[in-house]
Design a protein around this nucleic acid. Structure first.
Length: 261
DNA sequence: AGGTGGACCCGGACGC
DNA sequence: TGCGTCCGGGTCCACC
């Protein structure tokens, strides 16, 4: 669809797609990604798309009739459409770099597999965290981690999801675990759970669900020690961990140099 | 400023 | 079979 001109836009829910009419008359340039956001370069504007949890973006020659069709951009030949099964997805037009309507994008941390993701700044950020998992989900210290990969990375690093003030060693372990979990998920073409919410552009399921070690495995044995995986609620999210491999210790015992033992 | 809890939504799973 | 209820996913926002 790159190179095509946007002729018209139609949004089912104009309130949540503010500014979309600014896209009309622009030509779609490069398509980039930051974290979970897709950025279409329109020259002096960016078209920002977030698929939420169940959204799908498609380029189709004819306008589909689909009950979950939420936004349609009419292009020179064909349509760019956002299907948004549960209405958490977004399409917004902004000036490049001005992401006021998208505060999470405005404060997005580095890509986990990029050179900008560095252990030093990461360690500094997680040393101050009240609870590590909500910080990972905030997108501020690293971009793109959702509930599945946050749980998996914390398991690999042997850190309890509610742990605060990570020490240097924990920070290094978590840094590596995040990169491994993301790289593994990409190599397995994504995670498609039982509900098949995620399918790739060819409509094929991913394979990473077969490699998850804690997510949605509550009650099953830990792959390392055999202890039953626990599920708790943390920051409003279902959170899976091994209570034996990921013990929660008082922060004071972990933050090096803060005790007089 | 940072943390937290609720709102948003609806398909699917589950219980009766 | 059908109906009601609950859950969960990623932000965003109001509040602390």
């Amino acid at each position: 669809m790159v190179g095509r001109k946007i002729r018209a836009v139609a949004a089912q829910d104009p309130q949540r797609c503010r500014g979309l009419s600014q896209a009309v008359g622009h030509t779609i340039g490069a398509l980039n990604r930051r974290g979970k956001y897709l950025l279409f370069d329109l020259g002096d504007r960016h078209l920002v798309v977030h698929l939420g949890m169940t959204g799908q973006l498609a380029f189709q020659p004819v306008l589909p009739t689909h009950r979950h069709l939420r936004v349609a951009l009419e292009l020179d030949r064909g349509y760019l459409v956002l299907f948004d099964q549960r209405r958490f997805g977004k399409m917004v037009v902004t000036a490049p770099g001005e992401y006021g309507p998208l505060p999470t994008l405005a404060r997005l941390g580095p890509e986990p597999l990029s050179p900008e993701f560095r252990p030093g700044p990461f360690a500094q950020a997680v040393a101050k965290a009240a609870k590590i998992k909500p910080l990972l989900l905030s997108q501020r210290v690293v971009a793109g981690l959702g509930n599945i990969y946050a749980d998996e990375a914390l398991f690999r690093a042997k850190i309890h999801p509610a742990q605060g003030r990570l020490n240097q060693r924990q920070a290094e372990q978590l840094f590596e675990a995040i990169r491994q979990v993301v790289a593994q998920a990409i190599s397995h073409r994504g995670t498609t759970l039982r509900d098949r919410k995620y399918l790739d552009p060819e409509r094929q399921p991913g394979e990473n669900q077969h490699f998850l070690q804690v997510f949605q495995r509550a009650g099953e044995p830990c792959v390392v020690c055999g202890t039953a995986i626990q599920k708790i609620r943390l920051g409003g999210r279902g959170t899976h961990f091994c209570p034996s491999c990921q013990p929660l210790r008082p922060t004071a015992h972990l933050a090096r140099g803060t005790t007089r033992e």
